[in-house]
Design a protein around this nucleic acid. Structure first.
Lengths: 193, 193, 193, 193
DNA sequence: CAGTAAGCGAGACGGTACGTCCTGTCTTGGT
DNA sequence: ACCAAGACAGGACGTACCGTCTCGCTTACTG
């Protein structure tokens, strides 16, 4: 029979307050002003409690993403049946987040965090931390847009779209209506309208 | 009449050895192990000399990029007339850099630097620091591939392609032959072959 | 009637292994590298078991002294009838302990412990943890040495002798034969030989 | 020709405020509550500035002793020509320091510091940090007291006296008038009065 | 002979301090 | 004026221990 570990169990209260504190500081001051000491102080926790369960601040940020403490929850892709319209709405909501005062540094901070942590990178790719996969949605829309042939490389189309957003953030290029339109033309093909 | 300033002018030797030292450390240890003190020590230069001319380490890195101290010089896009083949070769060379031991962290470090410095982000977008614009090449190839209509959004296509590469790096997804193929299909449309 | 307590009694095994572990670490690494956690780990004991019975590490050390886990047992004062000879032998054995690699730091560690714990200080005074009182031996030898008048201040003579040893340790002055001789002259008066 | 070092020179202001802060904390809270961080904070100094010039807190304390920041300055041995009276006065002043609230822990702290630092131990031996040597005074008084023969071991007599004081502190034995008297009898021989 | 209360191992917890590294500013003396 | 060198105040790092607090177990006394 397996030897069961005895002793106190991980404190859920500590875990939550660490994640909350981290998410708050991240949103307020960005990834590079996020420090372990700052998290510990705001969370009312010893540093060792953080190091016991996470190996780096990027690890904490990754868990914040998982627990949805970090990104606005209204970024999910709508589902009206018209993929171009859905993506347009989605890109507009992303653009408005980016254009907000806090949003652009937040996304940039997230990219910085991703350079240190593969998991964050992966969640970024998966439609900016949104669970319902963008690639699946493109596949479901096959045939409704010029570039969405039944055997189109949906994953790569999705990557290209998200990658373009990331690149816009990195190069500080604004993402206005015309850009969104052209971006969708690039990915979906010319609009039939 | 304006008082002309006196004293020695900026030392080019110091400037070069700082950039060289920065590029070496960047390549060896990555952006977050790059420190002003480390640069000064390796360059045999006082810290003040660095602070006099640059305002941050990301500034130095940006200048390294301009002076081509940082990226392999053989990443330029070939020009055979066949844009799909040219891009294939180019993507393969990028992939081989990424797959090399030092390359992937280097690119990731560059992305990290870009999150702090718009200029670095812009150069990254401009075809991974390659001077001849990718978008222009796509425009020049208009008509030769399904998606390259004369009025296609070339800049956005280019962004999508580079963005996809960046996203691959961030999510640590390998970029093998098949992926390159599908990526080009996504951007250029299905191959006619 | 008072409620008599129930439950298991104090574990002698735990007590012994704590004292042994403490004595070992003390001897190996000195008083300031002696930690509660270290003792608990080496003794295979929970920290709480230590805190239940001792209030500080100096308390544990004091008990180690009582149980003679700490000091060499051969430091006792011989008894040949010639007090000067006896003290000479005794001082030589102390000197050889001090001169040994481990001995000097050990005594110094004991002094450090004594600064935190009166009991340790007292045992140090009582002839370096030797049970048979040095003062009593001097009194018994009254009349045999110049300074040992019947009404001599034996306790203070004893203190002066032990204090001199302690001071030698604190000031890292070696205690060679000549010093021992002069020390005895200081305490007992000039040798009649 | 020797290469002269250039650059800024050690800040005397920083040095002084570190020593002062250390002496204050030492006096207020004792050696084991004296921390590098506490010194740095009170001195308004970076920790690195401390580590640059001292290797441990015991080093700082040793320098405090040298600069006479630590011990009361009125402990010097009077000089009336009557060595027994002088020593009596001196021992009384030491006793009154020890009996004061702050004094006893201070001396004990000093002993603790001496266990870590030979220099502190040496200064402690040299008549409790008093510059004019006790042994020299005893030698000068040769012939005036029973035990002060011309060839008496003055250094060891002095050691015995100071050692007895230290031992009294370590064992928390009060040093009242009678004890002082007996101590002097032990060292100087019986009073002729 | 069950109930129950203490001892025990393990170890998580909020903290304090450690000694190191780096930041950006400053001072010094030399060219 | 610029430079190499490097001291300075400050802040964060990751580690080591502190003393307290569960946790689940194993005793041993008590009603």
């Amino acid at each position: 029979m397996a030897q069961t570990r005895t002793g106190p169990v991980r404190s859920e209260a500590a875990r939550r307050s660490i994640l909350t504190a981290a998410a708050e500081i991240f949103a307020e001051r960005g990834y590079d002003h996020l420090t372990i000491e700052g998290i510990a102080a705001r969370a009312g926790v010893g540093k060792q409690t953080i190091y016991r369960w996470w190996s780096s601040k990027s690890d904490i940020v990754a868990e914040c993403l998982l627990e949805r403490d970090l990104l606005p929850r209204q970024l999910s892709l709508p589902q009206t049946g018209d993929i171009r319209r859905d993506l347009t709405v989605w890109l507009h909501s992303i653009a408005s987040v980016i254009d907000s005062d806090a949003g652009e540094p937040l996304i940039r901070s997230l990219i910085a965090a991703a350079t240190e942590n593969a998991e964050i990178g992966r969640r970024l790719r998966d439609s900016l931390a949104d669970a319902d996969s963008l690639a699946d949605r493109l596949r479901a829309a096959a045939g409704t847009e010029p570039n969405l042939a039944p055997d189109a490389p949906f994953a790569e189309l999705s990557e290209a779209l998200v990658g373009a957003i990331i690149l816009r953030v990195l190069s500080r290029s604004p993402m206005d209506d015309a850009v969104i339109d052209r971006l969708l033309t690039a990915v979906l093909g010319p609009s039939r309208a």
